[in-house]
Structure formats: structure tokens, C-alpha cells
């Protein structure tokens, strides 16, 4: 199994840390993983993206031009990455701030009201975990216990008290995933 994912949105949305937790979860279940960030003169409010690859085999290129899954969290990223999803792949997006929703019919499209759900949970910072939960519902590539271990590994110990809240956000995301288009 190889899963090639792009996660793209605004800087500050937790795009890179969502990727990191996913990557750590892969390590926890003995997979090969690569986490490749867009780094550079980007800043809060600018765009940020990260490629995460998880595989049972040695991983070749960390730089990709097409993906199994795109998780898209703003319009600029939709414009850039909708076309890069492989036919039959998955596109998950948060409709908040999306003016032009995806139009492709040859891919599986899901949406998650991540911004709203995180606000309802009382902590907008859990947004990325809500989206992660939704993704894992659409594509259960890692086990929940690996995610839990991944959180423990990637969060500094002083933040471990926040793990239950994060797990709650993941649950909420799994519960509230909406299907927009399914390829039969």
C-alpha cells in the first residue's frame, strides 16, 4: 500500500502539523513515511502545503505531480491542486472560504465543515484534527491507536493534556464527513 497525499491551505491552519501527526502515525505502524513541506518565504496568512507519503515499501520521490488524496483548505489551493488528484482518487475540502467548489466527476469528493465544527467544539485550533478525522473516515489508512501514538510522539509533553481534546476533534470529523461525489 502506498498513499500519496497533499495537504494545502493557509499558513497557521495547522497544515504542516496535521501532516506530521499523520506521518508519525505511519511510523508507529511500521510504514515508510516522507513529509515534505513547502518551505520558503511563506508566512502566517500565506499558503502552505505539505506532501505526505506513507508506504509499505521504500519511497521514491518526495516531490510529486499527482496525488492519491488532496486535502484542500482554501481557494488558492483548490485552484492549484484539484487537477493533481489521480483519477479515482480522493479530494476532501472545507467549504469555508471556497468560492469555486470542485467540479471533477472522476474523483471521490468529500467535504467537512471543519471551521464550524472546531468552533462548536470550543477550540478553533482543533480545526486540523477535525479535518484529519474526516480524511480517516474517507480513507482509513492508519489505525486510531497509531494516531494516538503519533499525537503523543509529535506533541511536546507539556501539551499532552490536549490529546483528549484532539481525539474528540478527530471523532467529530469522522462523524460529520459529507460525501459530495463518488466514483462508482
Amino acid at each position: 500500500m502506498t498513499e500519496e497525499i497533499i495537504i494545502a491551505g493557509f499558513g497557521g491552519q495547522g497544515v504542516l502539523s496535521m501532516g506530521k501527526i499523520l506521518a508519525y502515525s505511519g511510523v508507529m505502524q511500521d510504514q515508510e513515511v516522507t513529509w515534505f513541506p513547502s518551505y520558503g518565504p511563506e508566512m502566517r496568512g500565506g499558503t502552505a502545503n505539505v506532501t505526505v507519503i506513507m508506504s509499505d515499501n521504500r519511497i521514491s520521490s518526495p516531490i510529486l505531480h499527482e496525488f492519491d488524496t488532496a486535502i484542500i483548505l482554501n481557494q488558492q489551493s483548490m485552484d492549484k491542486f484539484e487537477k493533481t488528484v489521480k483519477a479515482g482518487g480522493v479530494l476532501l475540502y472545507d467549504p469555508n472560504g471556497i468560492v469555486h467548489p470542485p467540479t471533477r466527476t472522476d474523483i471521490n469528493v468529500y467535504k467537512i465543515e471543519g471551521t464550524k465544527i472546531a468552533a462548536d467544539l470550543g477550540n478553533v485550533k482543533t480545526f486540523n484534527m477535525v479535518v484529519l478525522g474526516a480524511y480517516l473516515k474517507a480513507k482509513p489508512v492508519v489505525k486510531m491507536e497509531s494516531i494516538k501514538k503519533g499525537l503523543e510522539k509529535s506533541l511536546p509533553e507539556r501539551h499532552h493534556k490536549l490529546i483528549p481534546l484532539n481525539l474528540q476533534a478527530i471523532d467529530a470529523g469522522q462523524e460529520k464527513l459529507e460525501t459530495v461525489n463518488l466514483v462508482s
Binding site: K20, E32, V33, F36, I59, P62
Partner: peptide, 10 residues
């Protein structure tokens, strides 16, 4: 190079 320097892997 910067790509391998900045990327995370197992």
C-alpha cells in the same frame, strides 16, 4: 540540499 534538509522521514 534544502529539500532533504527540510524533509522529515523515518
Amino acid at each position: 540540499d534544502g529539500a532533504i534538509g527540510q524533509m522529515m522521514e523515518k
